[in-house]
Design a protein around this nucleic acid. Structure first.
Lengths: 339, 339
DNA sequence: TTGTATGCGTTATCAG
DNA sequence: CTGATAACGCATACAA
């Protein structure tokens, strides 16, 4: 049936000769409504193509059934996997998603936060931009007690709820693995050391070395933006070193791949001359030759857990929130690049 | 300033001793409001942390400032690039995005369409699922005259507005390139031939062959789901063929990569034994060895153009819509896999 | 079990 | 230039 104009509960009420209130209740399955009336309402509603008006409903109920998501980039394999996970759960629970990207820029992140705040999202899920170091733009959410959670790239303070993996341990594993393979001079390529994921990974790396009595060398830690290009640039640096590393732990597969590509082109043999371990288990890690050892990292699950938890908070506004940090499992995947 | 309760235009009006109507107008920059009054309003609003209530506004104005997006998958490089493009424009124009994925399944696509319809999005952007062959789930949008556009994977009917590339031409170029490289027996690996992108590419492939007087052979066209695994399976098929192809044009880089990987493992030399051309210019194409020739395909731009156009439609409800199809430029990128 | 009346926060219309 | 008032569609407190 073609409806040119929206039908409201008033229309239904008039046609059924009952009050709009009854229609409203019937539609929502309110307990005190006779089966018969409810049936009549439901049938007419379907027949007329009635759809509930969310604005009116939200205006009345003061919530939006919408979750805001801010991520650094949409177009990275890991992030899109996380978002797919978030979407799975949100969809199941009847929440809409408003997704925005900070493009790794605090300014854009702040703007997004404002927009989402004004859109009155019921909850917010954030993975921080590369250079975010102040968090006042999230204060409005805190003040209004709008549930707020961080995942993966989280603030270094524990006033927030975060979902992440044990980056330090994973990095420790990766580095220890390289040591076990006989590496003596292990380099670490990392990102902005103000971001938890990178500090933690760096610490894990350092800890592993110290445990074997290997002194830390500043020149063996490179911090860049972890892009593939940055990996290539790192390769050039390495090629010019007097003493080249014999193992490299890179905080991200993409960058590792760039570095490997450039190194290979310069004739360096991987893994014979230099062994590699990356991070993320991006699909590209099984395409590069030799296949890249890496840390597998449950993106989809991270999204699901975050969304699930946020929705719980939204639904139990009152319940005291006991969890502070949710740590997901991660694992070292050993492939040819490190053997 | 910490606000526990939302402040409304009434609150501002009371404090300023003017009417809510004036406040509303002042906030919106209505022409007939004195500079002085406007300034007072704006200042107090900021001071009080006023934020406009979108529900009330939407309820009143009957639109949501929201665009719905349905894509087959979020976690593909191409799609996330398109979405990044959409987001760029939407953000700039003050529209929110509600993104949902069909997971390549019509059922989920239908469900998403219903949800978005009920969320009263002002416009809808769709890239079809793998197996969508009926389009009645979009009828409600058409009936209510809600702008609807398709991109990349579009219906085969021209009642809709679509944004895409000339797949046929691109495929023709790719195939012709292989022919120019001396290939005599060119295979084509494609997806569901009901989806425009794959039929068109297949036709382009066929046309190129016919132009050189090469007869089409059924056994040289494989249709699968274009995943990396499917590419590997295709490789197994090829290895068992009496007469192997000497060139393969694959409708997607990922699948091409899977196929190349498996073939290489079996000792096939690329490009010497078999030359390859893919489609999409996915980053992986520069990681695989030899680097994969491919069709470059402006994902971000496709998103931007789609969003821009949709928003124009939303804003000019009345204007007759003259464009029906927008074709974006694409180009062949030649790399080692085909030389 | 159902109906009445009201308010949620805006904006548009009409009047001044 | 500004004010009063009426919708927008729904959900609920209160009444019956």
């Amino acid at each position: 049936m073609i409806q040119e104009k929206e039908v409201t509960i008033y229309d239904l009420a008039k046609l059924l000769n009952i009050s709009p209130a009854t229609v409203s209740r019937g539609l929502k399955g309110h307990p005190g409504i006779s089966k018969k009336t409810k049936k009549r309402i439901d049938e007419l509603a379907k027949q007329m193509g009635y759809r509930s008006n969310n604005f009116a409903r939200n205006l009345r109920k003061q919530h939006t059934n919408t979750i805001g998501v801010i991520v650094p980039r949409l177009n990275s394999y890991f992030m899109s996997t996380v978002i797919a996970g978030i979407e799975n759960i949100a969809y199941k629970e009847g929440f809409n998603l408003i997704i925005s990207q900070s493009s790794e820029d605090v300014k854009k992140e702040i703007a997004s936060a404002v927009t989402l705040f004004n859109s009155r999202v019921d909850g917010l899920l954030v993975s921080l931009a590369y250079n975010t170091d102040s968090f006042t733009h999230f204060d409005p959410f805190l003040q209004r007690k709008i549930p707020l959670m961080f995942f993966d790239r989280v603030p270094k303070r524990d006033s927030d709820i975060s979902v992440l993996i044990d980056n330090r341990r994973a990095a420790w594993q990766a580095t220890t693995h390289l040591l076990d393979q006989g590496c003596k001079r292990i380099m670490h390529i990392t990102g902005n050391l103000n971001r938890n994921v990178y500090t933690d990974r760096c610490q894990g790396y350092q800890q592993a070395l110290l445990e074997r009595g290997i002194p830390l060398r500043e020149e063996l830690v490179i911090a860049n933006d972890l892009s593939q290009e940055a990996g290539m640039a790192a390769a050039r640096t390495i090629l010019q070193m007097d003493q080249r590393p014999d193992g490299i732990f890179v905080a991200n597969d993409n960058c590792a791949v760039g570095c490997m590509l450039a190194l290979k082109q310069a004739g360096v043999k991987i893994p014979d001359d230099i062994r590699f371990v990356g991070f993320n288990n991006d699909p590209v890690s099984t395409v590069i030759e030799p296949n890249l050892s890496t840390i597998n990292y449950p993106g989809c699950e991270m999204g699901e857990v975050s969304a699930r938890n946020l929705i719980n908070q939204i639904n139990n506004q009152t319940a005291t929130q006991s969890v502070n940090t949710i740590i997901l499992r991660s694992e070292l995947v050993v492939r040819a690049s490190s053997m």
